[in-house]
Computed example of a mutant assay.
Amino acid sequence: MTARQARPRTHALALCGAVGLLLLLGLTGCGGGSDDTKPPTAPPKASSAAPEPSVSPADPDVAEKAAVLAAYTAMSREQMKAYRQADATGTDLEKYATTEALGQIRNDLAGMQAAGTVVRGELGHDAEVSELDMDAQTPTATLSDCVDLAGYETYDVKAKKAIPLPAQQPLRYVMTATAQRWDGRWMVTDIDPQGGAGATC
């Protein structure tokens, strides 16, 4: 099942400054009754200008990546609505998923109906756009999503009890999805639960 709204990561940069102590030494000379005292040398003025922080170039595709993640998040939300009732009726899946991706979801729903199960709780996501090709004839994006099953539950409607996850099932694992931009908007075209090759996250 599908699930990364790539959980935002922030980095704090601590700036440390060193304080220098300047000691002024007055040098005096004597001899012959004449005053050869030299005035003290003034210390150099410290520059008040702070060093400019290094700035990495802006990602030119940041807006497109945000649009991809928004479409994927919306599709995942509608998918969970369908799984909670084992039926896509009343959802907006067709707004965010193409025929192929919808087929995968409908296969899941058919299996749930046959087994008499629904989904309860929430499926956690931490998705990010791992690849983006805006130069392709049809712009394409690949997403990597860390799926979290901690709040997810399969429920047997007839037996009225939760079905535990298989013992070998990790609670967090990586899956992938593909999206394409059609007529100016991004659509999820493929969902691959095995795309992470069994990697945990």
Rank of each mutant, 00 (worst) to 15 (best):
R4T: 11
Q5L: 12
A6H: 02
A6Q: 06
A6N: 06
R7S: 13
T10V: 07
L13A: 13
L13Q: 14
L15W: 09
L15F: 12
C16T: 15
C16D: 14
V19A: 13
G20M: 10
L22G: 04
L23G: 07
L24P: 01
L25Y: 06
G26A: 14
G26N: 11
C30W: 07
G31H: 10
G31A: 14
S34Q: 11
D35H: 05
D35L: 10
D35W: 01
P40M: 14
T41C: 06
A42N: 01
A42P: 08
A42T: 06
K45Q: 11
S47V: 09
S47W: 00
S48C: 06
S48A: 13
A49Q: 13
P51T: 06
P51L: 11
P51Y: 02
E52T: 15
S56N: 06
V62F: 05
A63I: 04
E64F: 02
A66Q: 12
L69W: 00
A70K: 13
Y72P: 00
R77H: 09
M80L: 15
K81L: 15
Y83N: 03
Q85C: 08
Q85I: 05
Q85K: 13
D87P: 00
A88D: 15
T89V: 12
E94F: 01
E94P: 00
K95M: 08
Y96C: 03
E100G: 02
E100A: 15
A101T: 05
Q104C: 01
N107Q: 15
G111Y: 00
Q113M: 07
A115L: 07
A115R: 13
G116D: 06
V118R: 12
R120E: 10
R120N: 07
G121I: 09
G124Y: 04
G124C: 09
E128F: 13
V129I: 01
L132M: 03
M134P: 04
M134G: 05
D135S: 15
A136S: 15
A136H: 11
T138R: 11
P139A: 12
P139V: 10
P139D: 13
A141C: 09
A141L: 11
C146H: 10
L149Y: 06
A150H: 09
A150D: 11
E153T: 12
Y155D: 02
V157I: 14
V157M: 14
K158R: 12
K158N: 13
K160H: 08
K160Y: 01
K161V: 07
A162K: 04
P164T: 03
P166L: 08
A167V: 10
Y173E: 08
Y173L: 13
T176K: 15
T176P: 04
A177D: 05
A179K: 03
Q180I: 07
R181L: 04
R181K: 15
M187V: 02
V188C: 07
T189Q: 06
I191S: 09
I191R: 09
P193T: 08
Q194N: 13
G198L: 04
A199Q: 12
C201F: 01
